[in-house]
Amino acid sequence: MLTITNSQFSSRLFVGTGKFSSAAVMKRAIIASGAQMVTVALRRVDLENPEDDIMSHIDIKKIHFLPNTSGARNATEAIRLAHLARAASGTPWLKLEVTPDPRTLLPDPVDTLKATEQLVKDGFIVLPYMNADPILALRLQDVGAAAVMPLGSPIGTNQGIQTALQVAIIIEQARVPVVVDAGIGAPSHASQAMEMGADAVLVNTAIAIADDPVRMAGAFKQAVEAGREAFEAGLGASSTTARPSSPERGRIGEQLDFIDG
């Protein structure tokens, strides 16, 4: 079971709701993914052409809403969006995103830390999206982040876990759950993150733009479960040099003849 603050989740796959061809496909994909946590964004209603209300497609009794602050360029904007999100959703859960560069959508570490600190004081359960910077993860944890969400590679790129070395350090050090977000383009990427010991992954683009998003959602479900199972079963170590699979006893090691007895 994944525990974030006091909530428990049996699924370790979070699904984003953007970029789907239709609300109906999104709904079926979420069900196929088994996800219990879905992210949503907040936007002004387009008065000329109001879309359907996304909340009507998601069974909020079974699935946790995780509103994000996408579009916020700085801490002030993110905090404003967060309060709107709480008013709209009725939950204090928040995926904090502060992305000043519209080209890469990479998160701003300084304003993310600032906003996290403020929003925790305001009573939010904050899951900040962050670059895979281990010290930032610790700083965010210290100001009260409920989990950290390091990126695998820039959002929407489907490049996989390019930040593996850094993510591994974050996983080793963090006291709060680590949810690998962004860049997960294939089920194998999700497995890799889970095998490394990530607590969960968030996937959106890879499911939404697949030829068959519903089947892809199912594939991610299995990949996340397999990766987690492998992590819990205890993976053997990998090495760049050959290691014998027969016992190593008696292999050459250090001379320890200075030891008495």
């Binding site: 006893r249 292999r251 090691g253 250090e254």
Partner: peptide, 20 residues
């Protein structure tokens, strides 16, 4: 768990490898 294994009696046979 790995630390526990390295502290165990069977690990005594691996002292030179542990040293390396």
């Amino acid at each position: 768990d790995d630390l526990a294994a390295l502290l165990s009696l069977p690990a005594e046979d691996y002292l030179p490898q542990m040293a390396a």
